[in-house]
Amino acid sequence: MSAPQTDKPLEKVHPDNLPGLSDEQAANGLAALVEHSSQNKPGHGIHASSHTIFNIPWIHKLIPGIEKLASAYHVGNFVVIRGTKQQIFEAMPLYARIGMHLLFYGSAEKRLLHIKKVEDLLKEQSVKEGKVYDSPESVASIPQFIETYDLSTDELLQPDITKYKNFNEFFSRKLKPDARPVDHADDPLAICSAADCRLTVFQTVDLATKFWVKGREFTVPHLLNVDVSSKEAVTFDGASLAIFRLAPSDYHRFHCPIDGTVGTITHIPGQYYTVNPQAVNEPGFDVFTANTRSVLYLKHTATGLPVAFVAIGALLVGSIGWTNGGEEGKTVKKGDELGYFAYGGSTVIALFPKGVIQFDEDLVSNSMVPVETLVKVGNSIGRTPAPAS
């Protein structure tokens, strides 16, 4: 992954950037990419990016205008390497770009007319992709996926890739116990990253909607799927939130950010929209409150208050699985595994009641730009302020 050349701007995704691509062609293109994934060449299809499609002629025919788009723009977004001022470019996988074209195609009136069709398509293809990558034949995709994203196998609990039964088993791979040390592990007030991810943090939901989440329906009650007068809505009124976005290349198990106790899980059926930042930043488009998600309530040991841990599915994500997070009453330490995502990029949002967390200043500063920060499981993201003496 490298920074783009300065001769091309970043694309702001808009259907006018692919004027020759109709919504029907985009739908057929997404379905063809999913079908092509069964040929076990992810880097030459579903994970192709603007950097690589020039060498894949069949994609040019499938998606009219994509080569011209790639010539004119860098398709993706910047993220900051923590501890530096260096920003690096992450290319957007082709499937995510096509998914956004479908969602943003045409006028607002036209989108209202065809949105149900698009939602059904995205769900259908997400479920299909899950089945493709659950099949024994999908192990053939593992070597090229590793090559496409330049993944290291040294930290894997099972580094022998021939031992995985299917691609999804590799995708939700486990790491060696010491691969992700936890910052301030013995400090009960310290709070850590829940995932290997691109992170944004906001001390209040109002700040999040000002700088990052532009959907008009993004509220705590909508995210948690509770009534505005409910106990949960009252508890998390004025909450702080951390948004952990996992890219397809990331380690896809998620971990506990606090010392606490596992509570109940509520599953909320929903859509399978892409969680790419450009979709999240789109005014009036509600990714986090529309997508399928599971809400785990944790009890924070230091304060006795609940923390809402929201695992959000996304385009081509087959499932959300809970491990330790599925054992109600279990005591967990920060850094302990809670669960995993099957194939695809995805997101976790952690909601902290007012006063439970003061985020690390560097993360706050980056989020105000706004730009995401690369972090790993166990990295510090903040701490609970000590009670006034």
Rank of each mutant, 00 (worst) to 15 (best):
A239P: 00
N55I: 12
T219C: 02
V317N: 09
R293S: 13
L199A: 03
W58P: 01
F341H: 04
S367D: 03
G326M: 14
D362P: 14
Y133P: 15
D160Y: 13
V369H: 04
D120M: 13
E361Q: 15
P269S: 15
G99A: 07
L224G: 05
L175F: 06
V310Y: 02
E155N: 13
A96L: 08
D23F: 13
N55V: 09
L113V: 07
V228N: 14
E361T: 14
L315P: 05
I88F: 13
A3V: 07
A194I: 06
F89Y: 15
K116I: 10
R111W: 04
T303W: 01
D23T: 02
T384K: 00
S240D: 01
G45T: 06
D237V: 00
G321F: 14
L157F: 11
P385W: 07
F288I: 13
G304E: 03
S126H: 04
T148C: 03
A70L: 10
K165W: 03
E217V: 10
V127R: 02
F309P: 11
G304T: 08
C256A: 15
E35P: 06
P93I: 14
K85S: 05
T266I: 10
K68D: 11
T200N: 12
T347V: 15
S50N: 12
P353Q: 06
K163T: 07
F54T: 00
Q144D: 15
Q5P: 08
D360I: 11
D336K: 10
G355V: 03
K176L: 10
V295W: 04
T292R: 15
R253T: 00
A195F: 06
E282I: 08
A32Y: 07
E67D: 13
I268F: 00
V80N: 14
I81F: 11
F104Q: 12
G106D: 06
N281M: 06
D227F: 08
A308Y: 04
T153P: 04
L207M: 08
Y272G: 07
S50T: 14
C197I: 05
Y343W: 15
A70I: 10
A279S: 15
H47L: 15
I349Q: 04
V75H: 01
R173W: 01
P136K: 09
E109M: 11
G335S: 12
I81H: 07
I381T: 01
V356W: 05
P277L: 10
D134P: 07
Q158D: 09
L156R: 06
E129K: 09
Q39H: 14
I142T: 01
K117M: 15
L189Q: 08
K61A: 14
G20M: 08
V220L: 03
D160S: 09
F78W: 09
P42H: 12
E328R: 12
W212C: 11
A31P: 00
D183S: 15
I66A: 04
S172K: 00
L351R: 02
A247N: 11
S138P: 06
K128L: 12
I53P: 00
